[in-house]
Design a protein around this nucleic acid. Sequence first.
DNA 1: ATCAAAATGTACCAATTGTTACAATAAGAA
DNA 2: TTCTTATTGTAACAATTGGTACATTTTGAT
Lengths: 225, 225
Amino acid sequence: MIDFEILEGCPVFKGIKHGEIRLLFKDIHYRIRAYKKGELIAIAGEPALHLFIVLQGSVKGEMIDYSGRSLKIEDIEAPRPLASAFLFGTDNRFPVTVSANNEVSILLIPVQEFLKIMQRNARVLTNFLNNISSRSQFLSQKLQFLNFKTIREKVAFFLLQHTTDRLHSMELKATQQQLSEMFGITRPSLARVLSEMQREKLFIIEKKTVTILNKQKLREILHYG
Amino acid sequence: MIDFEILEGCPVFKGIKHGEIRLLFKDIHYRIRAYKKGELIAIAGEPALHLFIVLQGSVKGEMIDYSGRSLKIEDIEAPRPLASAFLFGTDNRFPVTVSANNEVSILLIPVQEFLKIMQRNARVLTNFLNNISSRSQFLSQKLQFLNFKTIREKVAFFLLQHTTDRLHSMELKATQQQLSEMFGITRPSLARVLSEMQREKLFIIEKKTVTILNKQKLREILHYG
DNA sequence: ATCAAAATGTACCAATTGTTACAATAAGAA
DNA sequence: TTCTTATTGTAACAATTGGTACATTTTGAT
């Protein structure tokens, strides 16, 4: 049985009371599955036949190339849908391999059933459209990011994106290892560039806090780098 | 006045007769605008308040990064929607700057009005969902491709993707210069790898025809780097 | 406080790609 | 054909990144 109050917090059901959500699920087929830490939830290339909603725990999506190297795309925490942008389309397959970060519980709704729900409730429809649009924008940004050639450019872009004109410092929530996976590079390479850029007084890293010292130079790296 | 027969060919209205499309537009506010060659249609960063459908002519989308370099150019010809994946979402702004390739006529439907149309007709809804999903998948594939580290891997992937088990040859429709741009590398680097791989008898290029000689080895490049 | 594990800094060398330049060939127009 | 331009092949060197290894620091649990 679904705990509909959890779904209130899910972007797809945002703004709908759990009582109403319960009504939407009347006569709808669905299934709930539990996964253990590390277990595979979906494999890249597999057809996406259900809407997956993470009810509990968090999952990891990564692209794995033929040589086994991975590019981590993102973590998805409860209560959020996953692979929503790949439910429809002419070739509706998972583009990423998804695995459980910890104990995970997932709600599976067949595509056709979910279509019914969207027709029943306009709010779910706009929520879902918002959700997949945001994903497109996310992928677009990711693409733009990977297009930056050098590690210096990636670092400069990352720092500028995470600070404002007023606030010149940010907290790193990821380790260098995780950052390097996001950037699609190796950890020592990232460390080397970070120390070079710090030697040039572009910024300083203390513990987990990055403080920008020369925002203008960082911008120039993207302009002429 | 809209020529509804043109819209029959638009992915968003696929499978709907023009008489029915006409009914869908009853009481719907819309606008048609003409643009001259070279004129700006939308600027990156601008909020997307309307669904844009190119009725006549073709438009060009350019992604411009901080340095002013244009990253990618996409042409959209009539009758197709543009930036459909960016209509919704929390930050619904144009990711690209769009300009007219020639004399262009564009149908502008306000977001709220288009939502009404989708609620009136389930086919438009699924068409639109398919459209955005396909776009996401396109971006995803692009990401996966850029994720291949070496030029050898990119070449191997490209060739395997364009040949079948039966047919071992393909026609190159692009010059090395264009291919290298698709791959995100320089032209001499591509040429070097192409000649190395030919020396290893993995394939041969004659004029514009590529013939695979050792498909097994190409696969191994992707498997073991 | 103490210890083990995780994370970080750094160095060395190999591999890959970029840059630049120029010759050879192919394609297209007059 | 003949000429011009675009495309391709290739070389030498520079720049960047990867791979590996190890010392140091930080973190977190006991």
